[in-house]
Design a binder for these strands. Structure first.
Length: 403
DNA sequence: TTACCTTTGAAGCGT
DNA sequence: ACGCTTCAAAGGTAA
């Protein structure tokens, strides 16, 4: 089912939109792409069925209110000292803006909401999660099973979990917050259920958000981090490293280095610090690696692109987009134009004129760094955050040739 | 039963 | 400083 490899969902690049994603109000979200793995006939059987070819979106019908009610899932931040006695009682008052923190506060536990005196209603602060995923990790299946048999699982796991080191989850970043909020909507609009496909759509929509809309989520995320820091002063993301080492064996062999071999490594990575004599001159001067650029050129120019997944247009806009992509299939046929990912486009632009690389976004932009909690988030920073990894190959990104 | 997929952002680590 | 990796959510899928 779903979309066959190379189906009508042609690749599309919003012409001339290389620098900025269009705001949402422009109504043209970035395009969807076809899973290249499927195109190559490599991997999973097509999914994401889309009956009828056109999406009969039932938009926000009454049932959506129910869906919306489910948007907010139980708190992820373990607060219950009874559960493990992990941390001292959480602060009774935190300098968190109730207006902007809003419903996301539920994640810090209803008790916290009360403790904060936020006066969050039951809708905003659902009952505390019965499962103990707040402190200990549960696999997906465990979570699924827990939903059907919470009590038994809880009782059976209690003894185990009390011996485990409490697991404090990372605070959600802006996109995660956006996803959490919009997922149900997308799911309702689409017939898709698989998160991978949903997330691709959400990723595109995220880029189509206006700066102001994104800013809201960056601000939320900043507050999440702030609150998280206050709840768990000693916590570090490092604490969770290796936590999923058993279950998360991500494929790490899809980066440019692997795909392009050692030639697609910069001298530093290629030879290491102890063989600096092997480095090219620019590398020794900490300039752009000429060998890397040459290798790129020799390879025909490669850019990281997201893994493509067969998708169905989920909204009217998406359908329009697909039509546009068909209309512009000539341009879209070129991998250059097929790079719908802003990151990919940025990478392309940087490839086209390496000397004119835009300055990379700040590692910890002011206002997004929890340590810069007092600094507001500026629009310019948001802009740069929107294009965080221009030429960076990521897990899940593949390299396609630019001819 | 459980890792994978897929997204972006934050953060950590190694060089 | 830079590049890479991990982990946050989510739920269907595949091994």
């Amino acid at each position: 089912m779903g979309l066959p490899a190379g189906s009508s969902l042609s690749l599309f690049c919003p012409g001339g939109e290389l620098g900025q994603p269009p705001p949402a109000h422009m109504g043209i979200p970035p395009p969807y792409q076809i899973d290249s793995k499927l195109a190559a006939g490599l991997a999973r059987t097509p999914m994401y069925p889309f009956p009828g070819g056109a999406y009969p979106y039932p938009m926000l019908s009454p049932e959506m209110s129910q869906v919306a009610a489910s948007w907010h899932t139980p708190s992820m931040y373990p607060i219950s000292s009874a559960a493990s006695g992990f941390r001292s009682p959480y602060p009774t008052s935190l300098p968190i803006s109730t207006s902007s923190l809003s419903s996301e506060l539920y994640r810090f536990s209803p008790t916290l909401g009360g403790g904060l005196g936020l006066g969050l209603g039951p809708a905003l602060v659902p009952p505390p999660p019965s499962k103990s995923d707040l402190f200990t990790h549960h696999s997906r299946s465990q979570e699924k099973s827990s939903s059907s048999d919470k009590s038994s699982e809880q009782s059976s796991n209690n003894s185990k979990e009390q011996n485990k080191k409490p697991h404090i989850k990372k605070p959600l970043n802006a996109f995660m917050l956006y996803m959490k909020e919009m997922r149900a909507k997308v799911v309702a609009e689409c017939t898709l259920k698989e998160s991978a496909a949903i997330n691709q759509i959400l990723g595109r929509r995220w880029h189509s958000l206006s700066r102001e809309e994104q800013a809201k989520y960056y601000e939320k995320a900043r507050q999440e981090r702030q609150l998280h820091m206050q709840l768990y002063p000693g916590w570090s993301a490092r604490d969770n490293y290796g936590y999923g080492s058993k279950k998360k064996k991500r494929k790490k062999d899809r980066g440019p280095a692997e795909l392009g071999g050692n030639n697609l490594k910069k001298c530093r990575a290629r030879y290491g610090l102890d063989q600096q004599n092997q480095w090219c001159k620019p590398c020794r001067r900490k300039k752009k690696c000429v060998r890397y650029m040459e290798a790129l050129a020799a390879a025909g120019g490669t850019v990281p692109l997201p893994m493509q997944t067969p998708q169905s247009p989920c909204s009217e806009e998406d359908v329009k987009l697909e039509e546009m992509s068909d209309a512009s299939s000539d341009e879209a046929d070129t991998p250059l134009n097929s790079a719908s990912s802003p990151g990919g486009l940025s990478a392309l632009s940087s490839l086209a004129s390496p000397a004119s690389d835009p300055p990379p976004p700040p590692r910890n932009p002011v206002g997004t760094n929890p340590r810069d909690a007092n600094n507001p988030l500026s629009v310019n920073q948001l802009t740069s955050q929107t294009w965080p990894r221009a030429a960076q190959a990521r897990p899940g990104h593949e390299v396609i040739s630019v001819s």
